[in-house]
């Protein structure tokens, strides 16, 4: 719903195949090869993680892999910069709580 279908200068954007992936177990869609963060933003997902100390929501900030605010757990690996990591079919993306998944974070308590 946030995709630019027809841009006055750039016209169309080259996108890969439409693929599905998981966000916290829920099936989502995006285009293969685009950053994971872009597919999430298009589906209205803005919160990528909750911080370790204050449990505050964070999402895309710099979009070029510098600020590391958009990191999530991807296929089990935490701290993956979703704004520069290309989406692949079947990826398992999880919201990051501190540096853990929700389940792991809850087990700590």
């Amino acid at each position: 719903m946030y995709r630019i279908e027809n841009h006055p200068i750039l016209h169309q954007f080259d996108k890969g195949q439409r693929v599905s992936f998981l966000l916290d177990g829920k099936e989502m869609e995006g285009f293969a090869g685009e950053p994971i963060a872009i597919a999430l933003r298009n589906s209205g997902v803005l919160v990528h993680r909750y911080t370790a100390k204050r449990a505050e929501p964070r999402g895309i900030f710099c979009a070029i892999g510098r600020c590391n605010d958009c990191v999530m757990i991807v296929d089990g690996t935490p701290n993956v910069r979703t704004c520069v990591t290309p989406l692949q079919a079947g990826m398992n993306v999880e919201t990051q709580y501190g540096i853990q998944s929700r389940g792991a974070a809850e087990n700590n308590d």
Binding site: T51, K53, R54, E56, R58, F61, C67, D69
Partner: peptide
């Protein structure tokens, strides 16, 4: 107010 985003 947060200044250092990463380390809060």
């Amino acid at each position: 107010m947060i200044v250092c985003r990463c380390e809060e």
